[in-house]
Design a protein around this nucleic acid. Structure first.
Length: 565
RNA sequence: UGGGAAGUCGCCAAGUGGUUAAGGCUCUGGUUUUUGGUGCCGGCAUCGGGGGUUCGAAUCCCUCCUUCCCAGCCA
């Protein structure tokens, strides 16, 4: 009988609001209902992960539920492809909306009825002002607007016109349905907002059933109310819309008026997040589609090899608040590394190979060493790695003129080949241009396994791949898509800040054979190089293509930089 | 110059009148290590400015400053 009462304080202002509402008995059936309301006009990105985790996470934490509702009220921009990708992305994150998959378009009938009622009650009217006139009448930020000359037209007339609009008897742009609120409101959203507009567009879900479509400020709050949403969470830019939200949910006959709360959207430096900019990158062919591993889209992140767990951890660490913020890219990388360190299988892969020849090792001998899959896991299995006289090592692991503090291979310096033997370089072979072609060395048979009885120390350990027993793979080294912290800040054009080194292709990397067992979705660490995954798009049976997810932290690289090397 | 919001360490972010002002990332010392990875130990803020209230303020009041959002028949 443990009496310990876990009083976990709410971790952000939304949790506090929910807990207060729950405690005050304000929530119907004591069950909160949230919703994730994407518009299917593009791919979801990392910013959406924050919203998804918030909405689904809150529902989980307080034993409520979260609806997936598509805000599909603009048929011109919405596509089935997006609807499907959104579901795939949310599922990948591990969230389940169960039966609760909805579409604002499901409510078109009800929305229409409410609109008709508003007209009958004199609370809405058909306006025949053109778009330009409408803009003029709206006023400016500092000047109040003017009532439309159509505002006081007879109810019957508006009713008839609205019906004709619905029947397609009027062209696009000729008239709209507007609410009568207050043209003098300091809040632009309350200056008789448009409720319905005419669009002769084919809708993904309703086809050609409608040619009038409701606007966000009318649709969203009512959809929330219909679904019994208790806490409607959105981003800061909708703060100004809250009065409109409240106006709509307070229309007679609408029950369980939900409340809207706003939080700061996620921004990360070195990234662009707007759908417009992302779409542009795709259209211009700057990236390999929406799922390019450098894209911040969920599909890009997945293809890059980031795990859903690390993404949830990331948004959790970022927190939820109301101040606009820009999160450091380093936090993202930290979360990815932390998760992958625990789960990635270790393999030896040489990205920039040079040959290492062990002169005193038998020419035709092949011996196998045992390599642990993951040293972080005490129960980890291991796999065999073939070792031979000729190997490939990383070019970076040998230096003709070692800088201060360098303890890898150089003439006379004994270094360990991981799992295998200690070797000492003796000479270098160069081509006519002076490039190092091969390094010769001798090995100490007594160091078999990578240690000696005398306990003598070696400072460096290098990874290696047998020249004859290894396989060749293609590796794509990805880095930040943008080179500046705030893309476009300098010139005003974010494309000016593209990082020219964001995608480097290595076609002749050498890998231990074990790599052939890799499946798409496996998390790998190429020892001392970083985390990698099999590319889901460009790998085929004949050739494996790997994507670098993220590098390992590299304190030697930083030291070199500091020393100006 | 209208309205709405935000300002706590380089980046996030707790804190809601009495705390040595949480925590994470970054940075940085050291240590462990068959990954210059990981792990472990340590360092790093007086709260946008100025007044005031109070025995006592990041927390209350006044004032000033800065930043962001809003004038789609987009969401």
């Amino acid at each position: 009988m443990d009496e310990t009462v876990e009083v976990k304080a709410p971790s952000n202002f939304l949790e506090r609001i929910i807990e207060d509402d729950l405690a005050a008995g304000k929530v119907p059936n004591n069950m909160i209902i949230t919703r994730f309301p994407p518009e299917p006009n593009g791919y979801l990105h990392i910013g959406h992960i924050k919203s998804i985790c918030l909405n689904f996470g809150l529902a989980e934490k307080y034993q409520g539920r979260c609806h997936l509702r598509y805000d599909d009220t603009n048929p011109e921009k919405e596509e089935l492809e997006y609807i499907e990708s959104i579901k795939r992305d949310i599922s990948w994150l591990g969230f389940d909306w169960g039966e609760h998959e909805y579409y604002a378009s499901d409510y078109y009938g009800q929305l229409h009825q409410i609109a008709v009622r508003l007209i009958k009650e004199g609370k809405a009217f058909i306006d025949e002002l053109s778009a330009e006139e409408l803009k003029e009448y709206r006023g400016t930020l500092t000047e109040v607007g003017k009532n439309s000359p159509w505002r006081d037209r007879p109810i019957e007339e508006s009713l008839a016109l609205f019906e004709e609009m619905r029947q397609g008897k009027h062209p696009e742009g000729s008239m709209v349905l507007r609410a009568k609120i207050d043209m003098a409101s300091p809040n632009m959203n309350m200056r008789d907002p448009t409720l319905y507009r005419i669009k002769f567009a084919h809708h993904v879900r309703t086809g050609d059933e409608w040619c009038i479509y409701p606007m966000y400020d009318f649709t969203h709050p009512i959809s929330d109310a219909i679904e019994g949403i208790t806490h409607s969470i959105c981003t800061l830019e909708f703060e100004d819309h809250r009065p409109a939200y409240d106006w709509a949910t307070e229309i007679d006959g609408i029950d369980h008026a939900p409340r809207q709360y706003e939080f700061a959207r996620l921004n990360i430096n070195y990234m662009v997040m707007s759908k417009r900019r992302l779409l542009n990158l795709v259209k211009l062919g700057i990236v390999d589609g929406w799922d390019d591993p450098r894209m911040p889209t969920i599909s890009g992140i997945r293809r890059r090899g980031y795990s859903p767990e690390s993404m949830k951890d990331f948004v959790g660490r970022v927190g939820v608040a109301k101040s606009e913020s820009v999160v450091d890219y380093s936090l993202l990388e930290f979360c990815v590394r932390e998760d992958l360190n625990k789960r990635a299988k270790r393999l030896m892969v040489v990205l920039e190979p040079i040959k290492l020849i062990i002169d005193n090792y038998p020419e035709d001998r092949v011996e196998y060493f045992d390599a642990v899959d993951n040293p972080e896991d005490p129960n980890s299995p291991s796999h065999p790695v073939p070792f031979t006289r000729e190997l490939y090592i990383e070019a970076e692991d040998f230096a003709e003129h070692p800088p201060k503090g360098y303890h890898r291979l150089y003439i006379g310096n004994e270094v360990r080949l991981k799992y295998a033997y200690y070797v000492t370089p003796t000479s270098v072979e160069k081509d006519e241009d002076g490039n190092i072609v091969a390094v010769h060395c001798t090995y100490d048979p007594a160091s078999r396994g990578g240690a000696t009885e005398d306990g003598r120390r070696v400072r460096g350990t290098s990874h290696w791949v047998s020249a004859s027993e290894g396989v060749e793979i293609e590796v794509h080294l990805y880095d930040k898509l943008f080179a500046s912290e705030y893309p476009g800040q300098g010139t005003g054009n974010y494309l000016d800040d593209l990082n020219p080194d964001s995608h480097v292709i290595v076609t002749d990397a050498k890998a231990e054979v074990e790599i052939l067992k890799t499946q798409v979705g496996d998390y790998l660490q190429f020892i001392r190089n970083g985390y990698f995954c099999l590319d889901s798009k460009h790998s085929d049976e004949g050739r494996q293509v790997y994507n670098r997810t993220v590098t390992l932290r590299d304190s030697w690289a930083r030291m070199k930089q500091k020393m100006g090397l």
